[in-house]
Computed example of a mutant assay.
Amino acid sequence: MADLAGLRVLVVEDEGGVALLIESMLEELGCNVTASVATLAKALNMARAETFDFAVLDVNLDGELVFPVAEILKARKLPFVFSTGYGRIGVPETFKECEVLNKPFTIEDFKTKLLAMLGSSRPSGDG
């Protein structure tokens, strides 16, 4: 089973209270929040240039969809999980293999999705 301790995380969430809750859960799981951003423009910059192990992406950032950020992360082979109140229905078919965390969620739900995301991001063929 994957270990979350020490992993660096980019949090993309436009609601301050939710961002703080996600950051707190990540820290409780042993992760280090590298950055937390609330706008699509900042998220795009972070996705292109920063170093982190995975990302948590809110789907709707004040009316702008986060999918361009997800495309960059996919190209960089960086794992991510979508966080949304819309459920899987709010995620395009292009990202059908991605984990979707339904808001609201518990820390147990969060950990399960993160471990699944990290497990599926490993190259196939590893024994």
Score class of each variant (00 low, 15 high):
71 E>D: 13
34 T>C: 08
119 G>Q: 09
16 G>Y: 06
101 L>V: 01
57 L>P: 06
100 V>F: 00
27 E>T: 15
61 L>V: 12
25 M>R: 12
44 L>C: 09
98 C>Y: 01
32 N>I: 13
87 G>A: 04
82 F>L: 00
115 L>E: 08
11 V>S: 09
30 G>E: 13
125 G>V: 12
39 T>N: 01
60 N>T: 00
88 R>Y: 13
96 K>M: 07
62 D>K: 15
85 G>T: 10
86 Y>F: 13
12 V>I: 07
85 G>K: 01
1 M>I: 00
37 V>K: 05
105 F>W: 06
47 A>F: 12
112 T>P: 10
114 L>E: 12
32 N>D: 14
1 M>T: 03
103 K>P: 00
25 M>F: 15
3 D>I: 11
46 M>L: 04
82 F>G: 00
27 E>S: 07
72 I>D: 02
39 T>K: 03
8 R>L: 11
36 S>T: 14
22 I>P: 05
124 S>Y: 10
66 V>K: 03
118 L>G: 06
109 D>G: 01
104 P>F: 08
55 A>E: 01
73 L>V: 09
16 G>A: 15
97 E>D: 15
110 F>A: 12
81 V>H: 10
101 L>I: 06
77 K>E: 14
67 F>M: 11
26 L>G: 13
57 L>W: 05
35 A>T: 03
122 R>M: 11
104 P>I: 15
17 G>H: 08
86 Y>V: 02
107 I>H: 08
30 G>A: 10
8 R>V: 03
66 V>Y: 04
2 A>D: 10
97 E>F: 00
119 G>N: 05
106 T>A: 14
67 F>Y: 09
90 G>I: 05
121 S>T: 01
85 G>H: 10
97 E>A: 15
77 K>F: 15
81 V>W: 15
38 A>F: 04
99 E>G: 05
99 E>T: 12
91 V>P: 14
5 A>S: 12
74 K>H: 04
31 C>L: 07
115 L>Q: 08
9 V>K: 11
126 D>W: 14
1 M>G: 12
63 G>M: 13
109 D>P: 01
1 M>W: 00
40 L>K: 05
21 L>D: 14
80 F>S: 02
55 A>I: 04
122 R>S: 09
82 F>C: 00
23 E>V: 14
22 I>L: 13
10 L>H: 05
44 L>F: 01
39 T>S: 11
84 T>H: 02
71 E>P: 00
17 G>L: 14
105 F>Q: 06
48 R>W: 01
112 T>I: 15
92 P>F: 01
16 G>E: 06
120 S>L: 06
46 M>Y: 14
61 L>E: 02
23 E>D: 11
42 K>H: 14
118 L>P: 03
18 V>G: 06
10 L>F: 00
57 L>K: 08
124 S>V: 06
30 G>F: 11
120 S>G: 12
